[in-house]
Write a protein that binds this DNA or RNA. Structure first.
Lengths: 226, 226
DNA sequence: GACTTTAGTAGCTAGTCGATACTTATTAGG
DNA sequence: CCTAATAAGTATCGACTAGCTACTAAAGTC
């Protein structure tokens, strides 16, 4: 009985001091999507609960994800604190956001739908800001953390992997260069399986299996935008 | 009268629901340093205040920085929410952290000292975690945001700039490569001044003056650590 | 069996990165 | 004054990288 309703509407007490919100991302039809709750009466929202001060933030977020998704996310990370936008279903002045990722093909839990991040339903302002921040976080961290791999099933073709990178980067990549870089990074290993999907030559399936490689330190990059 | 004492110790009321904390970084003697409050009775701490729900987070952090540093920071950004460590001077269950940067050479405000981040005094656990996160944030964002330039005075030599990058990266850089990359980025412009400091040839002074350059998209990097 | 489609590879070229080695300008010291 | 020392700044070379065009391979379609 530790769900949203019981925490917030617990009689006439004042609303919780803070909320914990989850932006759960996945991919579908070559689109980045986010889990949106449409079952409840009232407007759409992303999963949230009142923040329980007696539980650690990371643990609470992991549990919220498990409860609302029906499975442990493939990846989860803190997004930050949000309070500059006033509107939030909890009425709390402060919200703590987390991003999670589940593999593409995961069915949306009952009462929820996968919404294209470029075409979201109307969300409370603070939650909309969290979704924007989550997408940026995925893009920013994708080459430090294996986010693209978490968005794929455990076995995948190199073309699928490249498509996922293209989706996250928002631009096309060159096939040969992509594979050369991937080879040099020792991140995947081939399986014995092949997948033939309609036309064309069948593709070999790979799995994510990073090997320790010598610490090739990257050079200074002046990518300053402003 | 909007300082820490009045907010927290305001009679017998319960402690604030959340605190706002500031990790203010600078550089000194080729070391990254952070502003630590040592004046108050009790153990050392970094600046903080009870979070006022009626003010926006960013605005409140900017004001906290101005008030406690005596000047506007050269850069400030959100760090995130912290609640997994229990110990915090406010007793609040939740804290929101911000990182700020002031140029090297800025005098420490009264009651505060610059403490080497690699040799910190004992801080409340949650604040110590914030300092660690702040240093990581500076390192992670330094090539997207001009953090090194904000840590320097408005005019600087290229050797000083390189030292600052080396400080943030934690490793030595090659002089010619560094300057070549800098040149290609169109980030600095020379001034008419030269600085001769003891021995050796005088160095020309530069200022940060980024020019729009064509959007040279960077290639995919597989820097995955795990 | 020719054509289409997709997977995967090879080789060329332009540019990048780091090293060594050099020139220039100043102070220190005889 | 002349030389050594020190630090700023430049030039050039070779290894490596990234992206391009073009190719081969294996399946389905007609």
């Amino acid at each position: 009985m530790r769900d949203r309703t019981s925490s917030v509407a617990r009689a006439g007490r004042s609303p919780a001091a803070a909320s914990l919100d989850l932006v759960c991302c996945s991919a579908e039809h070559r689109r980045l999507v986010v889990a949106v709750d449409v079952a409840a009466r009232g407007p759409a929202s992303i999963p949230w609960q009142a923040l329980d001060p007696s539980v650690g933030l990371d643990a609470a977020a992991a549990r919220l994800a498990r409860e609302r998704l029906g499975r442990a996310p493939a990846w989860i990370a803190a997004l930050g604190a949000f309070g500059d936008q006033r509107k939030h279903p909890s009425q709390a002045a402060l919200s703590v956001g987390y991003v999670a990722v589940v593999p593409m093909g995961t069915a949306a839990p009952v009462g929820m739908v996968w919404a294209d991040v470029t075409d979201l339903p109307a969300l409370p302002a603070r939650q909309a800001a969290m979704v924007t921040a989550a997408v940026s976080a995925l893009r920013d961290r994708m080459d430090l953390v294996p986010i693209a791999f978490r968005l794929l099933p455990s076995e995948f073709t190199l073309s699928e992997l490249q498509e996922m990178y293209e989706l996250l980067l928002g631009r096309r990549l060159h096939k040969a260069s992509f594979r050369r870089a991937l080879q040099g990074a020792y991140l995947v290993e081939p399986t014995d399986s092949w997948r033939s999907e309609g036309r064309g030559r069948p593709a070999q399936l790979f799995r994510y299996a990073p090997r320790r490689r010598r610490g090739h330190r990257r050079s200074v990059r002046f990518e300053l935008l402003t």
